[in-house]
């Protein structure tokens, strides 16, 4: 198969898409938002438990999507748990630039390496919205909006 496909669908991504982490609806979630991609019909809910000072104590999701959107959602929930709202938004911003190809690398501390796994998306412009769907939903959940769209 082709190198850029291997780059896009790395083992880690296939693993996360087949066995998404934090694929659940926590009872004690106090923020949630629905992410919907009208182009493909993919839909997912992101659930957050936010504590004092904007600390994300738990992050989870449920929904249907392609390998890229599921893997991205799964990895996102792992990465943002334990971060503050501000930190998560900075990560989102950097991540968006990364997958759109606006920046070649990002500085996300210990998480840099994990997020870079999704950098292959930049070669597939039609798939950028798949990669960012959960992140948009996360951001909307924190802002108290119920609906997030990639449009």
């Amino acid at each position: 198969m082709f190198d850029d496909l291997r780059e896009l669908y790395q083992e880690v991504i296939l693993d996360h898409s087949k066995h998404p982490r934090n694929f659940r609806h926590p009872d004690d979630a106090n923020h949630e938002a629905h992410g919907y991609n009208p182009l493909c019909g993919d839909t997912l809910n992101v659930y957050l438990k936010m504590g004092h000072n904007g600390l994300i104590e738990d992050a989870a999701f449920e929904g249907k999507g392609c390998a890229i959107s599921l893997a991205s959602a799964s990895m996102m929930t792992e990465i943002i748990t334990g971060k503050t709202e501000t930190e998560a938004k900075v990560l989102f911003d950097g991540f968006q630039k990364l997958v759109k190809g606006e920046e070649a690398t990002i500085d996300a501390g210990d998480d840099t390496e994990r997020l870079m796994v999704l950098a292959g998306v930049k070669e597939f412009p039609m798939r950028v919205k798949c990669a960012t769907l959960a992140w948009h939903a996360m951001s909307s959940a924190m802002d108290g909006e119920e609906e997030a769209s990639t449009e």
Binding site: L5, L8, Y9, C40, A67, C130
Partner: peptide, 9 residues
Amino acid sequence: IHPHDIGTI
């Protein structure tokens, strides 16, 4: 396998 992944491949 999601159709989007089929399409891309």
